[in-house]
């Protein structure tokens, strides 16, 4: 147990560098009141949780005038504190247009009809693809830097992220883990969550089974992984999440070790994925200590 604490402290120390880098960036621009570059958009509206967080990490104070409602929810957003004071939108073209934005940042899966309407109304829209790999993170950060006219800030964040990522090494045996979400879904190596798991020093059973998307409970039981990593249940019950309390999953978790995905660090391709990797490394250390 002590080893585990020691290891996670170590991981945390390195991670705190990144978090302080983000904090410093936000703070510095807040204190200096550094205005956005001339020609950069001054009224940015974000309509996607992931672009919310990237924009808040990089923007000049006052540059982002609205984010989604989810951005202020600590459970799913790493920038909840920063988002708390910013007016929330629910992603409808009408309300976005009334905010008179000079840039809308959106995700690839944001409602097409909404974005098309905004474009027709003459609002520039910048679309961000979701991150499917750790390598996508720097690219998304740079894209946001470009869009907001905050290239230097983006570059600083990317450098810090890449240095921290390169510093992670996970020698030794690789335990077999299963990612198991609501509705019995899993993800393989070609997804952000799968890459976080891999970087944390685990092999993914979805890869052995060739499972994409739904992972039947029977196959999960037969694969008998060393660790089952599940999501945190949301408030208000759902049948979709009840599957994570199925006797088979409960038994696997009792028999072995279990982990939890903290949604805010796992969902979006922000530099905070390093925190998710740190959680997984701590879990792996815990597993080794038990052996």
């Amino acid at each position: 147990m002590e080893r585990r604490i020691a290891l996670s402290t170590l991981v945390c120390v390195r991670l705190s560098r990144l978090i302080s880098a983000v904090a410093a960036l936000v703070l510095a621009s807040a204190l200096a009141g550094a205005p956005a570059l001339a020609g950069a958009p001054q009224r940015v509206v974000s309509v996607n949780l992931c672009t919310d967080q990237l924009a808040l990490m990089l923007a000049a104070p006052g540059q982002v005038i609205s984010v989604t409602k989810l951005a202020a929810v600590p459970r799913v957003s790493t920038m909840a504190a920063q988002a708390a004071d910013i007016p929330a939108n629910s992603g409808l073209a009408e309300e976005i247009y009334m905010l008179q934005p000079d840039l809308v940042v959106a995700g690839r899966f944001t409602d097409r009809a909404t974005l098309d309407m905004l474009r027709r109304l003459g609002v520039p829209v910048e679309v961000f693809s979701p991150a499917y790999a750790l390598q996508d993170v720097p690219q998304r950060v740079r894209q946001m830097g470009q869009a907001l006219g905050r290239v230097a800030e983006a570059q600083a964040l990317v450098q810090r992220f890449e240095a921290d990522l390169a510093a992670i090494s996970t020698p030794g045996p690789r335990p077999r883990a299963a990612l198991y979400y609501a509705n019995g879904y899993t993800s393989g190596d070609s997804s952000l969550a799968g890459q976080i798991l891999r970087a944390g020093g685990f092999d993914n059973i979805a890869q052995e089974l060739g499972a994409i998307g739904a992972l039947p409970l029977e196959l999960l039981a037969m694969a008998n992984p060393d660790v089952v990593v599940t999501g945190q249940p949301y408030p208000g019950a759902s049948r979709a999440e009840a599957i994570m309390q199925h006797p088979v999953v409960a038994q696997l978790k009792r028999q072995h070790t279990s982990g939890t995905m903290t949604d805010r660090d796992w969902v979006c391709g922000t530099p905070y994925v390093l925190r998710a990797i740190a959680d997984m490394r701590a879990l792996r250390a815990q597993l080794e200590a038990q052996r």
Partner: peptide, 22 residues
């Protein structure tokens, strides 16, 4: 519902399923 997965369950309550019962 406050739960983001709840809406998807409309299908279950309309069509029924025995998958992964215990």
């Amino acid at each position: 519902s406050k739960n983001p997965f709840a809406v998807n369950e409309i299908v279950f309550w309309m069509m029924g399923s025995l998958a992964d019962r215990s």
